[in-house]
C-alpha cells in the first residue's frame, strides 16, 4: 500500500512536470516561429512571458502536496522537457530527412531563459496552493489538532461544571 502510494505520487509528479514542459514548449514554438503555427498570436512576446509563469503557477498548485525542493526540481525538469521539445521542433526537418539548410535558430536558444519564469511560477503557485488547497498531510494534522483542542475544551468544561465543595474536598 505504502509502495503504491509512493509510485502514484512519483507518477503524478512526473506527469504534471512533463505536461508543463509540453504546454510551455507549444506556446513558445507557436510564438517564436509564428509562421508555422496553426494560430497566429497578436502579441507573441506577451505569450512567451506569460505562459511559462501561468503554466508553472498551475503546476505549483498541483504540487502543493510535495516538498518545496520537489517543486524546484519540477521547474527544472519541465524546463528541460520544454527545451527538448523546442530543439525537437528545430531539428524536425533534419530528422525527417527534408532539411534544406541549418535549423532556424532565430535566437531560439533564449528558451533557457524560461527556467526563471517557470521557477517563479511554480514556487508562487505552490505557496498559494498551500494556503488555498492545503496538502493532505497538513489537513490531517489540522484535523487532529482541532480534535485535540475540542477534547481539552470538553474536559475543561466538565471540570468547571463541578461544584466548588467537591473540588475543595479533593484538595490535599
Amino acid at each position: 500500500m505504502f509502495a503504491w502510494t509512493r509510485v502514484r505520487s512519483a507518477g503524478l509528479f512526473l506527469l504534471w512536470t512533463f505536461l508543463a514542459g509540453v504546454i510551455v514548449a507549444a506556446f513558445f514554438v507557436t510564438s517564436f516561429f509564428g509562421d508555422y503555427g496553426p494560430v497566429r498570436l497578436a502579441d507573441p512576446g506577451t505569450v512567451i512571458l506569460f505562459m511559462p509563469v501561468f503554466t508553472a503557477f498551475i503546476l505549483g498548485l498541483l504540487l502543493a502536496d510535495y516538498e518545496l525542493v520537489h517543486t524546484v526540481v519540477a521547474a527544472l525538469l519541465s524546463t528541460f522537457v520544454a527545451i527538448g521539445l523546442i530543439l525537437g521542433f528545430m531539428y524536425a526537418p533534419a530528422v525527417a530527412g527534408v532539411a534544406v539548410g541549418p535549423p532556424p535558430y532565430q535566437g531560439a536558444f533564449s528558451s533557457v531563459l524560461l527556467f526563471p519564469l517557470v521557477l517563479l511560477g511554480t514556487v508562487v503557485g505552490r505557496a498559494i496552493g498551500e494556503r488555498i488547497l492545503p496538502p493532505a498531510e497538513t489537513q490531517r494534522r489540522q484535523r487532529a489538532l482541532e480534535a485535540e483542542t475540542r477534547e481539552w475544551h470538553e474536559r475543561l468544561t466538565q471540570i468547571e461544571g463541578r461544584s466548588p465543595s467537591e473540588d475543595r474536598g479533593k484538595r490535599p
Partner: peptide, 18 residues
Amino acid sequence: VSAGIFAATVTKFVDYSQ
C-alpha cells in the same frame, strides 16, 4: 490542446522544408 498545437506546428515546419 498544447500538444495538438505543437504537433501541427512541427508538421507544418517539416512540410515547409520538404
